[in-house]
Design a protein around this nucleic acid. Structure first.
Length: 835
RNA sequence: GCCCGGGUGGCGGAAUGGCAGACGCACAGGACUUAAAAUCCUGGGAAGGAAACUUCGUAUCGGUUCAAGUCCGAUCCCGGGCACCA
């Protein structure tokens, strides 16, 4: 038996030599952009997760290529990032050096997959040729007012010593290092992703994306429509007119008659102004205390606290005097930083009201509440306050105790009340989003420097595009003090102001690596362009990406950021499409043998290299595709890989056998055999359909069936020519899955006539006629229970099928003389006789 | 708490409302072999039965339907996301 391992190099070299992976611009009309998420060289090795993403994706690319598409499948490295820098602090190895080294190893490993990556589009985000344009992107966003600097509370990871984005905070811990995240007030750079909130939300429905990812993004954007309502301060004599109102945001304007107090966030600017003398000390202490407690504690303790400010405001609907509180459960960074509290119909307000003994006014009853002809409310819902006081009742329903609005259904009341308030200038409809602007400043070295200069005279001055890239200096010192090495690098920091030419200082923050990865798919098709990030025309013909395959962990980060960047570049006139990734698929997660997530500490990490070294890449990648449902993943199993080895050896023997016999009897007759022909076309049809859906495991199952069928026909002495033909189809079907082995088998089959790579051949297409059988087997049910099977001519009419079914021996016995009441016939499936 | 997924043999996993368990692993039996391995063939949801066959069976309970793993309602468990968002 041949050593499959030896085939990897042979065919890889051949593909390289022949330029088989090259994208040919001539065929641009048939382009297919097949993208995988590029690798992050933080660890020194390609791990199983990479393989599980890249190998099946390559099978898909090869399938598309054989289908006649001009496939563009690039690969590169997302090579900036914290881990390299942390490694430098720990070991003294410069991030540039460790990154270069890791990339070298990983490139070798990538080669081992045997994937058809386009060689000329290779990129590394940490190379000046690339980050020059990441900086260009920043400047463009700045120019358009989409990048700005502000003092804001940000998430600060103490261990990483840098600010991180909202999206990078998981359970109040850093997404990367899992240590605590602190809220800090810092001047930071932001991208105005919120300006695109509505489009980012809306266009989600046009995408062929996993529904879960769409749901996550929708959730993250968090649109809610409601009203912004003003509560006028009851004693506003000493304040300016604009300050005399508290604006609250609510989605439940229908509950406004149930408001018993108003709450401000402790950070709210009005707090200071409205607090009365008697309450000043208490309020100040409370504000100080809550601001000091990090968000972490504010969330984990959850117990609501607050204090009375001494001030009152007036209900805009009935003029009722309402006390104003400040409380930690009101958040400054959402809505207006103030809420109207309706304890009877909101859980949080209820909890607070109970604790501080505030009135609870019920104004909504369940949907059973109705006005009778005399305008009296009848209540039929069991949850209504008049029966069992099941409050807080947070659902919508019918209004009670709400003046002229009583009796209205909630949704109607919301519209009506807002309309009336608008007339009085005290309210309007308002949409809020949970999405915050993207914080992109990082106080770290190993990233693209933000191309900004701070000048004492001119203020913030962008680096002129002609001066790009702002190069990251190599000679910096990495220390454990948590201070950005760049800020201590004199030769980097000190510069001249481009405007006034006086000495000025460079911005020392670098860009979040997600900025680098938010546009890399635009760079690939024009990766060697020295003048521009990409040529507009080229991109217009190559983008959007047709199939994007990668991990689900990027749902609210990379995938959202990329959509935003695409839209902003479109609005600047650089792109002519709205969405970067029309079709997206996430591969599942491969777990350790123990069914647990792989981790070094658990000691259950599976190293792909060991298996590839032993079996070659085809067996390994086929196991990854056959052993799991692609989008589910699952636990690793060593036996599974042996199964695929067995299968491929079985195919090899088959090809060996058939090509040997063909050599012996080259003029074998071609005698048609329906069954074998059917098996071949059945396999072709399903492998095509399954590959289109990335259902690799079932596609391989169909190929296995074909192999079994061919073996059977050899035994049955079916025409050698036909077997030979079936075999050739088999190898083509197999080619995207096991490219090296398929090339070898193809060469074996062709013998002296071999001319070119199997990937220059079209993928088999099935012939519908070959799948039409003369006879079909139908199951016959009596009262929905299967009693018999019958063979009917495929062309039989329903009447004929009925006749055959009823005259079947077992059916006669089962019916036992009873008269059929109804006969249901499902084409090609079954007959159900109801008696 | 809320929003998504998911729960099918000993195992990985298949099933446009229409014959549950494709394909494979493991297992068992047979062939080949001095023997073993490899290979090739056959069999395997469970229970009962000599067999034909019968009954049960896709987390649980109920419903719709001639027909439910699939649709609907409730419950339990597992995974993921969000989490004081007014």
């Amino acid at each position: 038996m041949i050593d499959f391992k030896s085939l990897d190099k042979k065919w890889n070299d051949y593909w390289d030599k022949e330029g088989l992976n090259k994208f040919d611009v001539k065929n641009i009309d048939k382009k297919y952009y097949s993208l995988v998420m590029f690798s992050y060289p933080s660890a020194s090795n390609l791990h199983l997760g990479h393989w599980y993403n890249y190998a099946p994706a390559d099978t898909f690319s090869r399938f598309k290529k054989m289908q006649g598409h001009e496939v563009f499948a690039p690969m590169g490295f997302d090579s900036f990032g914290l881990p390299a820098e942390n490694f430098a602090i720990k070991t003294g190895t410069h991030p540039q050096d460790s990154t270069d080294r890791n990339i070298k190893t990983m490139q070798k490993q990538l080669k081992g997959i045997g994937a058809m990556y386009e060689p000329s589009s290779y990129l590394e985000t940490s190379s000046p040729e690339y980050y020059k344009f990441t900086q260009w992107l920043f400047l463009k966003l700045y120019e358009k007012g989409l990048a700005y600097q502000k003092l804001a509370p940000v998430n600060f990871c103490i261990s990483c010593a840098t600010v991180i984005a909202n999206e990078q905070v998981i359970d109040n811990k850093c997404e990367r290092c899992s240590s605590d995240v602190e809220k800090r007030e810092m001047t930071q750079w932001f991208f105005s992703i919120t300006k695109y909130a509505e489009e980012l939300l809306e266009k989600l429905d046009t995408l062929d994306w996993p529904s879960k990812t769409v749901a996550m993004q929708k959730n993250w954007i968090g649109k809610s429509t409601g009203g912004e309502i003003s509560f006028v301060l009851s004693d506003a004599s000493d304040m300016s007119k604009t300050d005399a109102k508290i604006k609250v945001f609510t989605t439940r304007t229908d509950t406004i008659f149930g408001v018993s107090y108003v709450v401000l966030a402790p950070e709210h600017p009005l707090v200071e102004k409205i607090t009365t003398k008697e309450h000043k000390k208490e309020v100040e202490e409370y504000v100080k205390k809550t601001l000091k407690i990090s968000d972490i504690d504010r969330q984990t303790t959850k117990e609501k606290t607050g204090v009375f400010t001494g001030a009152y405001c007036l209900s805009p609907v009935n003029g009722e005097k309402l006390p104003i509180y400040i409380a930690d459960y009101c958040l400054m960074n959402y809505g207006t930083g103030a809420v109207m509290a309706v304890p009877a119909h909101d859980e949080r307000d209820f909890e607070f009201a109970k604790k501080y003994d505030l009135p609870i006014k019920e104004v909504i009853v369940g949907a059973g509440g109705q006005l009778d002809s005399k305008n009296n409310l009848t209540i039929t819902d069991h949850r209504s306050p008049t029966t069992d006081h099941n409050i807080p009742f947070i659902e919508k329903g019918t209004l009670i105790n709400s003046g002229t609005y009583s009796g209205l259904e909630s949704n109607k009341a919301i519209r009506q009340i807002l309309k009336d308030l608008e007339k009085k200038g005290l309210g309007q409809t308002k949409t809020n989003y949970r999405l915050r602007d993207w914080s992109v400043s990082r106080q770290r070295y190993w990233g693209a420097p933000i191309p900004i200069i701070h000048c004492d005279k001119c203020g913030i001055v962008p680096v002129p595009a002609s001066d790009l890239p702002v190069k990251l200096p190599y000679n910096v010192v990495f220390t454990k003090d948590g201070v950005n090495p760049l800020s201590k690098c004199e030769e980097f920091i000190n510069t001249k102001c481009p405007k006034c030419k006086k000495s000025a200082k460079r911005e020392s923050d670098t860009l979040d690596t997600f900025v680098c990865s938010s546009w890399y798919y635009l760079r690939y098709p024009d990766a060697n362009n020295k003048k521009e990030p990409f040529d507009k025309k080229k991109i217009a013909s190559m983008l959007p990406v047709d199939k994007y395959i990668g991990g689900a962990e990027h749902a609210c980060m990379h995938l959202l950021y990329s959509r935003f960047i695409t839209k902003s570049l479109r609005d600047m006139g650089y792109l002519n499409f709205d969405e970067p990734f029309t079709s997206l698929v996430h591969q599942g997660l491969i777990l350790g043998k123990d069914g647990m997530k792989m981790s070094k500490s658990r000691g259950n990490v599976v190293n792909p290299d060991l298996y590839v070294d032993e079996h070659g890449s085809d067996i390994f990648r086929m196991y990854l595709m056959f052993g799991f449902s692609f989008i589910e993943g699952g636990a690793w199993n060593d036996d599974g890989i042996l199964a695929l080895k067995k299968f491929l050896e079985r195919v090899y023997r088959l090809v060996e056998k058939v090509s040997a016999s063909i050599k012996e009897t080259p003029f074998a007759t071609l005698e048609f055999n329906f069954d074998l022909n059917y098996a071949v076309h059945y396999a072709i049809k399903h492998v095509n359909e399954d590959l289109e859906k990335l259902s690799f495991n079932t596609a391989i199952a169909r190929i296995m069936e074909l192999v079994n069928a061919i073996y059977k026909h050899i035994e049955q002495n079916t025409s050698l020519m036909l077997v030979n033909e079936a075999n050739q189809t088999l190898i083509k079907l197999l080619a995207p899955f096991a490219p090296h082995i398929a090339e070898e088998l193809h060469q074996m089959m062709c013998g002296d006539n071999w001319e070119e790579s199997i990937f220059k051949h079209p993928y088999p297409v099935h012939d519908e006629q070959s799948l039409v059988k003369f006879e079909t087997e139908l199951a016959v049910q009596i009262n929905s229970k299967i009693k018999s099977k019958i063979l009917i001519p495929t062309t039989a009419t329903n009447e004929e099928i009925e006749k055959i079914a009823i005259s079947d021996e077992k059916v006669i016995e089962a019916i036992a003389g009873a008269k059929p009441k109804k006969i249901i016939i499902i084409k090609d499936r079954l007959v159900n006789i109801i008696v």
